[in-house]
Amino acid sequence: MILYGLKTCDTCRKALKSLPDAEFVDVRADRVPEAVLRTAHAQFGAALLNTRSTTWRGLAESERAGAPLDLLAAHPALMKRPLIEAGGRLYLGWTAEVRAALGAG
């Protein structure tokens, strides 16, 4: 299981605490592999972008209009977190549904 997120993100920390065997990948330092990012975008669409983040609010309107995958490549912190890869499936966020699917409290 791989958890993609930010080490400073409270939600990612909660997820890691509940999933102690997960490998953590900091998206700022190590990036999300392009294939994983493409699959996540195909599965989650616009939900993959965190449009409530300070990073998003700091972008110019012209930048926000860019292709989502290009935005995520340029600004990894724009990704909604955490993105979890487990058993060949992807999960986005740390909702009750995700926790239940992963068997985490």
Score class of each variant (00 low, 15 high):
residue 16 L to M: 11
residue 95 T to P: 09
residue 60 A to P: 13
residue 23 E to G: 04
residue 78 L to V: 01
residue 63 E to D: 14
residue 77 A to V: 05
residue 40 A to F: 08
residue 69 L to Y: 14
residue 104 A to T: 14
residue 88 G to E: 15
residue 73 A to G: 15
residue 91 Y to D: 10
residue 9 C to I: 02
residue 36 V to P: 05
residue 67 A to Y: 03
residue 64 R to S: 12
residue 60 A to G: 13
residue 29 A to C: 00
residue 89 R to F: 07
residue 17 K to R: 09
residue 50 N to Y: 06
residue 84 I to S: 03
residue 66 G to C: 03
residue 4 Y to E: 09
residue 23 E to C: 05
residue 61 E to Y: 06
residue 51 T to K: 12
residue 100 A to M: 09
residue 34 E to I: 14
residue 83 L to E: 03
residue 57 R to W: 00
residue 14 K to V: 04
residue 46 A to Q: 09
residue 34 E to Q: 09
residue 14 K to G: 03
residue 13 R to D: 02
residue 18 S to G: 07
residue 84 I to P: 06
residue 21 D to M: 15
residue 88 G to R: 04
residue 101 A to T: 11
residue 23 E to R: 15
residue 76 P to S: 09
residue 69 L to K: 12
residue 53 S to Y: 07
residue 31 R to E: 00
residue 96 A to I: 04
residue 53 S to I: 01
residue 79 M to L: 08
residue 12 C to K: 09
residue 48 L to G: 02
residue 24 F to S: 03
residue 15 A to M: 13
residue 72 L to Y: 01
residue 32 V to R: 08
residue 5 G to Y: 14
residue 66 G to H: 13
residue 93 G to Q: 10
residue 11 T to K: 12
residue 22 A to L: 02
residue 79 M to T: 05
residue 103 G to F: 09
residue 27 V to R: 06
residue 54 T to D: 12
residue 76 P to N: 10
residue 7 K to L: 12
residue 6 L to H: 03
residue 15 A to P: 01
residue 39 T to F: 05
residue 90 L to F: 06
residue 17 K to A: 14
residue 48 L to I: 08
residue 96 A to W: 06
residue 5 G to N: 12
residue 52 R to F: 00
residue 76 P to F: 04
residue 90 L to V: 10
residue 100 A to D: 13
residue 86 A to L: 13
residue 43 Q to P: 14
residue 38 R to G: 03
residue 4 Y to K: 04
residue 15 A to H: 07
residue 47 A to H: 02
residue 27 V to P: 01
residue 21 D to R: 13
